[in-house]
Design a protein around this nucleic acid. Structure first.
Lengths: 217, 217
DNA sequence: TAGATTGTTAATCGATTAACAATC
DNA sequence: TAGATTGTTAATCGATTAACAATC
């Protein structure tokens, strides 16, 4: 494996490659060329080969790529060949939503606890899991060897929640709070701004509408 | 407003500009220069000016940008100055999660119905909303003037769900299903692959770990 | 008017695509 | 061996940054 910095654009494409490879495996397809893969996935064959060659030469000239072999390589690159223990901070609507969502996850991602400051919610059961007191988060992360903290608090509490999680030793933060947070550089951070995504959808809807109007004149 | 095609990178930054502007408004800040804004938001001043000038000259030389004025311009660009009526297709864990999430949305986004094929779920109440029969979706979208369909079905049903929504006349689709779908070009499509995002997080966690090991030798 | 800061053109950088030699 | 397809270098394209004239 080479050691040059991989661009984020490449990393964002890897899970997508993987999804298509899994579909191919299900269909019993054993090998695929970059050209065939290009037709399926919509990236150019050239880009697929470039992307993969950031990590190694997984193909074979004159043959193509082994579907299962490539999927396994991508699993290893993404680190999906191990378990990740997760906690959620914030049991409001957003936290409840994400807790619910984690049930649909495949692979080694395991939700181990949900934490909340609101005394009305602490101790309540939510989708088969007891909501715990936020004050116990540091102990819990240490004792249960939690890898990932998922932040579903409100804007105001998000940075403090991140600080606590990082202090307690999580290796990654998945931020759903509607604010940008900072973490030490030894902690990975992935941001999901669902409302930003919805706003982008609204933009595109209006853009299409504008163009339709324009073409009518 | 100019009419050249705006790149997606720009559009993805607009909601973020907006979020920061709203924070500034709350603090009572009335004007901001691209340089000050750059320090807050982390994009270069040059990029901020470039981005905004895709849509018009909202600033004033020697002064900067009016915070409220700029926020209103961005609202108009994104189309946030109107109401959006939404339905969710799929009331499983994922659909339940997103239904829950929509409660936290501000602005004109309104969830009007949740639909499901599973007879065990149809008729049940979920977070204050009765789950409706999927067979009635086309009528409902037409009668209730639904703008946005949110797809939270399983992989297998997602494309058919999209087809029905488009046929019924939605203008936008927000896809959370773990599969890529196609829609007619007069319908806007925004994709959220939460699992892809989590996989990218796993990559970065493992990347950091690898570098730490590397530096120890 | 002088100072500040935009709007916009030009330069740079990085990512994507094309081409082709290497090789299975 | 001949054909196919990769891995990789070179060319192109697009997006970001820098520079500066316009102007409030």
């Amino acid at each position: 494996m080479k050691n040059t910095k991989i661009s984020n654009a490449v990393i964002k494409r890897l899970p997508r490659y993987r999804r298509y490879l899994i579909e191919l495996e299900k269909k019993g397809v054993e090998k695929i060329s970059s050209k065939e893969f290009s037709n399926m996935i919509g990236y150019t064959a050239s880009q697929i080969r470039q992307d993969l060659n950031n990590f190694g030469g997984f193909g074979q000239q004159g043959y193509g790529y082994s579907v299962t072999g490539l999927r396994e390589e991508i699993d290893a690159i993404l680190g999906l060949d191990r378990e990740y223990r997760m906690v959620i901070l914030g049991a409001g609507n957003l936290g409840h939503a994400i807790a619910n969502y984690t049930k649909t996850l495949t692979g080694g991602f395991k939700l181990c606890g949900v934490f909340e400051t609101n005394p009305d919610l602490i101790g309540k059961m939510q989708d088969g899991m007891e909501i715990q007191n936020y004050d116990n988060i540091v102990d819990f992360v240490e004792k249960e060897k939690i890898d990932i903290g998922i932040i579903c608090t409100n804007k105001e509490s998000a940075q403090e929640a991140a600080d606590k999680l990082c202090f307690a030793g999580v290796k990654g933060i998945w931020n759903f709070a509607r604010v940008d947070i900072e973490v030490p550089k030894h902690v990975a951070l992935e941001i999901v701004h669902l409302s930003d995504s919805l706003h982008a959808l609204a933009y595109h809807m209006n853009d299409i509408k504008k163009k339709e109007k324009g073409s009518k004149k």
